[in-house]
Design a binder for these strands. Structure first.
Lengths: 209, 209
DNA sequence: CTAACTATGTTATCGTTGCTAACATATGTT
DNA sequence: AACATATGTTAGCAACGATAACATAGTTAG
């Protein structure tokens, strides 16, 4: 991905410090983890003093929250996009959503952690949850199609949850480097497909008998 | 659990600073999270100077690793203990292991995070993995019993992994407060039981035809 | 018994961090 | 031109992790 490439400011004012700080944060977080990330580093990268960010973000946490929410939005978009590459409402489209989820986690490991972290988002957790619900909605609608439901029924909610749980667990095990604790080579895509098939309730006949 | 209760040292020497620091760390971590935990706090609790811990731990990370390894060991023991409360090698005993896992995560949220974190353990990750494999072995042996295998076959490994993934995901969703994103009340124990049943391959007839 | 050694404390200090206060400089509006 | 607002700067705070130099206790050898 784009390595922190920064245009130094020209005069006293920067131009787009807010945007550049978010971008710098994203890059630095992916490089050193959310804790290894420091405001000072971001400032150095943006060529600005240590106090400048506090005109745009109330705190370091606030900046991180911004990064997290952006991540959730992108995850939702990517899931929708990949689901659309398969016949809607099938095991395949659902497995595609799962693969997208895990791949996102592996590609943007630290952003992913941030997205689901409770700390680092003091006071804005509800805001974050709302964005998260948006992404979860992609899965819910796909499960609804699978079940032939017109809207998000109780049944849909019940069926979707274990699928989420499964890929969420797989994501964390993968990014925490635990897949070699299993003592056999885990094929992630295969694992997702199999679990999706098993966890879904039997599908009602698509049409006719 | 035991709130950080500390016996001040009597003379110049402390007596059991190492042990008391680990214990203080456990308490403080559970109270304020692994990041909210500071060496200085632990020192204050133990009634000792800021430099003293470095006679016993090479770094803060090193102390945290100790806490994590202890946690993994206790998790393994608890899983074994609860599995033994049910007929061995059944869906029930396997679900009990899963429940123990998630309950541990919820009871010792921050220690749990630490146990599976890759950061905070620089240089000792393999050591940690070994302890982790010990705990995982409890699940593996129970799955082997379920499948009627005498040792940990490929089939056992394949069957156990999705079970782990499921409860691991459930644990993180639970401790990250995401169970209300699902828009329906999640019954954790029920959820574990259902997923266990669905994820396991059909059981071979216990005995006879 | 005492000298030497080792283990385990202390104090002093350093560099880094997140953040705030007080001040400076652009930009835009009237 | 005068003022208000947005957005920078410098200086400085307290807390943190860590190290170096020193102090003291307990242990072992002669």
């Amino acid at each position: 991905m784009a390595k922190a490439k920064i245009q130094k400011k020209t005069g006293y004012h920067h131009g787009d410090l807010r945007g550049q700080l978010i971008s710098a944060a994203r890059d630095l977080i992916e490089e050193h983890g959310p804790d290894g990330f420091s405001m000072s580093d971001a400032c150095r990268l943006a060529g600005v003093s240590n106090a400048a960010p506090y005109r745009h973000f109330k705190s370091k946490e606030d900046l991180l929250t911004e990064v997290a929410m952006d991540g959730l939005a992108r995850l939702g978009a990517q899931m929708e996009q990949h689901a659309a590459e398969y016949p809607r409402g099938t095991v395949q489209s659902l497995a595609a959503i799962g693969r997208t989820y895990v791949q996102f986690a592996m590609r943007e490991q630290h952003t992913f952690r941030l997205m689901f972290s409770t700390k680092s988002h003091a006071g804005r957790i509800e805001e974050l949850k709302t964005v998260g619900r948006g992404a979860y909605g992609v899965l819910l609608r796909e499960v609804a199609r699978y079940l032939g439901e017109d809207d998000i029924t109780e049944e849909v909610l019940q069926a979707a949850f274990p699928l989420w749980t499964q890929v969420h667990g797989l994501s964390f095990l993968a990014i925490d480097g635990k897949l070699d604790v299993t003592a056999f080579p885990v094929d992630i895509d295969q694992s997702i497909l199999l679990a999706t098939e098993r966890l879904l309730p039997p599908r009602p006949e698509p049409q006719g008998s």
